[in-house]
Simulated assay, not measured.
Amino acid sequence: MKSPYKSLFLFLMVVSTYMVLSSSNWLTTWMGLEINMLGFIPLMYLKETTSESETAAKYLVPQALGSTIFITSAMLALHSNALQSLMPIAMCMKLGAAPLHFWFPPVMAGLPLLPAFLLLTWQKIAPIFAISSFHPTLITKILPIAAISALWGGIGGVNQTDIRSLLTYSSIAHTGWMLASINSPTPTLTLYIMTYILITISIYMCLVKQSTKSHKQVFSLKEPYDSFLLAITILSLSGLPPLTGFLMKLLVLYFTEAPTIITFSLILGAMTSLLYYLSLTFTPLLSLNKMHFHKTKMMSKSSIMFLLSQTLPLSFILFYF
């Protein structure tokens, strides 16, 4: 960050998330969401270009609309309980869940790499945990949104060549899985979000070394070993066994209380997502036998930590349950 004041906005974004997590009433939740939004918008201006200003406006309008719907329905719910169903719908709009995701792909396409990954990870925490604090009857009403998000995230990623677009539709699909895990009797949602953030950070660490967008350019690196690590991370995000992403989806399927049709939609969306993830990583995985790894490179600390991040959470989650 070029400007020191952005550290303050980063601090506001982090503190406001904890404010939402610890709030005991809707007014405090709404204030935390607003501070979170206002703290994230200045972080979008890394290069201070005109396109970033346009992207910030595209982000501000639906976020402000979702906050307005949320606080209005919270106040009107004092007189009519029927209007409470608008509150989780407003949070789904802030999350970018389908079919309320109209703002999410354009914003992701115009953001620099670091703010884009903040939007994919940290900015999901406050709205999803705000939804988890609702009454179970309200959460049940948004389960169709979870099914639509999983299906749309799988279908929308087909024929995409931009790595940002792939991660965008993958995020929409994972949002559906997060919504389906809210009613679980165990802390499945917390584990799912932590694992998703861990895998996404791994992808960010692989992409931050370069400034390419097309997946063909991403996997045509000078070092084939970097392409192999990136392919493993993307397959983990898709939920391919036995990687970490597979177990977090397996936990949702085991503990969720969603109806069968919702569960089937989640599985169908995951299978569709896996289709284009496999096509994306097909070339670097087939060229594995052509790679000549140096012993020192294979045993480097960064490589060991990367591989452990994709496998160790499996053991931790199994021992926890």
Score class of each variant (00 low, 15 high):
K141L: 15
T195C: 11
S133M: 10
S80T: 10
I197K: 08
I142C: 07
G153T: 06
D162I: 01
G154Q: 08
L191C: 03
Y225M: 13
S171N: 14
A147M: 01
W177V: 09
L111W: 05
A90Y: 04
V218Y: 11
C206A: 13
N159A: 14
P136Q: 12
I128M: 07
L207K: 09
L138P: 03
G176I: 02
S80L: 02
Q210S: 12
K216E: 15
N159K: 11
K124F: 01
G157P: 07
G157W: 04
P187G: 04
H215L: 10
G96N: 10
L95W: 00
N159F: 13
Q210D: 12
L100K: 02
A147R: 01
R164Q: 11
I155N: 02
M87K: 14
D162P: 01
Y204C: 02
H174C: 02
A109T: 13
G176H: 01
S149G: 11
K216S: 14
W122Q: 10
S184W: 02
K222S: 15
W177L: 08
M108E: 12
A97L: 08
I163A: 12
R164A: 03
A126F: 03
D226V: 09
T121Y: 06
S85I: 14
A147F: 00
W177M: 08
T121A: 03
I203E: 15
I172L: 09
F219V: 11
M87G: 05
I145S: 02
K141M: 12
S181H: 07
T175S: 12
Q210T: 14
M93V: 15
P144T: 07
L83W: 12
F129N: 10
M205Q: 13
L118K: 02
N81H: 10
L198I: 09
P187R: 06
A130F: 03
G96M: 08
L151C: 07
G110S: 07
S165A: 07
S85N: 03
N159W: 10
Q84H: 08
I131T: 04
G157S: 07
Y192M: 07
A98K: 05
V158F: 14
A173V: 00
A98W: 03
I125F: 02
L151Y: 02
G154A: 08
I199V: 15
A173G: 13
M205P: 00
G156T: 05
Y204I: 01
I125Y: 04
P112K: 09
T161L: 11
M178F: 03
I197D: 09
F129W: 09
A126V: 06
N183Q: 15
S132Y: 02
F129S: 06
H135P: 01
F219L: 11
Q217N: 12
M178T: 07
T175I: 13
W152G: 11
S211I: 00
K213L: 13
H174Y: 08
S171Q: 09
I125H: 04
T121Q: 10
H215D: 01
K209W: 04
Y192W: 06
F104P: 05
V158T: 15
G157A: 05
L143Q: 15
I197Q: 05
K213C: 04
C206L: 13
L151T: 05
P127K: 01
N81A: 13
I203M: 15
M178Q: 11
T200P: 04
H215I: 11
I155P: 03
